[in-house]
């Protein structure tokens, strides 16, 4: 059986909010290392991959592999009943029909309990090859969100060009063009404001802004975001979850090609 307790319901609320624009139904795959999720959007352009390690929970118990097939809009409805600071416990039997969610207020004076019906989801599982990316950029997550939203006013796609000079996000549309260039810089007092660029070779790729803006719904989960790029492979956009236990929310986006 599964029994996992999260100190802050907020974490799951935000994860579900961040991915529900891309995916309707998906399996939460539970095993002794934690809860994982992988799903593609309907158009096969974007993929979300989440890992919540057992260490993100206290306690965490899962004896065998359990797939929880969940409709995300139904889960959103149930999670609306959880206050952000509530303690959230997820429970399921082996081969379950429902997942049980319990929300406790931190003052322990209220306990809410919900059972969410599960569904059978036959999900395609993709293998993601280990990639040595040519460029990786670590930057404030809110800055990335701002850039994507601003450039979406200009065009539906953005080119991301990374050289040793910096990283340039550029868009060209009917009304004109726009670009934002970030140079590497360290902020000692506020490290979350730093921009770090790790480059082995220059990269230039184009992506759909609609998807990138969708990914940035994860912004409130982490102060920083990491973009990893190589020519002619999908972009990886990564948010670290719940500090330092290597839990993550990753998005992959197929590049656009040709002109």
């Amino acid at each position: 059986m599964l029994e996992s307790r999260l100190e802050q319901a907020d974490l799951l609320k935000k994860v579900v909010e961040a991915i529900s624009g891309l995916v309707n139904d998906c399996n939460f795959d539970c095993n002794d290392s934690g809860i994982a999720l992988q799903a593609m959007d309907n158009s096969h352009v974007a993929l979300v991959s989440m890992m919540l390690k057992a260490e993100a929970f206290s306690p965490y118990r899962c004896d065998r592999n359990i797939a929880l097939g969940i409709n995300l809009s139904s889960l959103t409805k149930v999670l609306r009943a959880a206050q952000s600071s509530d303690i959230l416990t997820l429970k399921a039997e082996d081969a379950p029909d429902v997942v049980n969610l319990v929300f406790e207020s931190s003052e322990k004076d209220r306990i809410s309990e919900y059972d969410l019906k599960l569904m059978d989801i036959d999900q395609e599982h993709l293998g993601i090859p280990e990639t040595e990316y040519a460029a990786s950029i670590s930057m404030p997550s809110n800055e990335f969100q701002r850039i994507c939203k601003d450039l979406m006013n200009i065009s539906e796609s953005v080119s991301i060009e990374c050289t040793k000079e910096g990283v340039k996000f550029a868009a060209a549309g009917d009304i004109g063009t726009g670009s934002v260039t970030l140079k590497q810089h360290s902020n000692v007092d506020k490290p979350e404001q730093s921009v770090e660029i790790d480059l082995s070779e220059p990269v230039a790729l184009s992506f759909s802004l609609k998807y990138l803006v969708n990914f940035t719904k994860a912004t409130s989960l982490a102060s920083k975001v990491k973009l990893s790029l190589s020519n002619e492979v999908p972009l990886l956009v990564e948010y670290e979850l719940s500090g330092g236990n290597s839990s993550y929310l990753r998005f992959y986006l197929a590049p656009k090609i040709g002109d």
Binding site: M40, H44, V45, A46, L47, E124, H125, L126, G127, I128, P129, E156, S157, S206, S208, V233, P234, Y252, A254, P255, K256, I257, G258, D259
Partner: peptide
Amino acid sequence: TPLQNDLGEFFYMA
């Protein structure tokens, strides 16, 4: 406008 690739061209079925 550039054409949108499919993710399946990069990732294999596991």
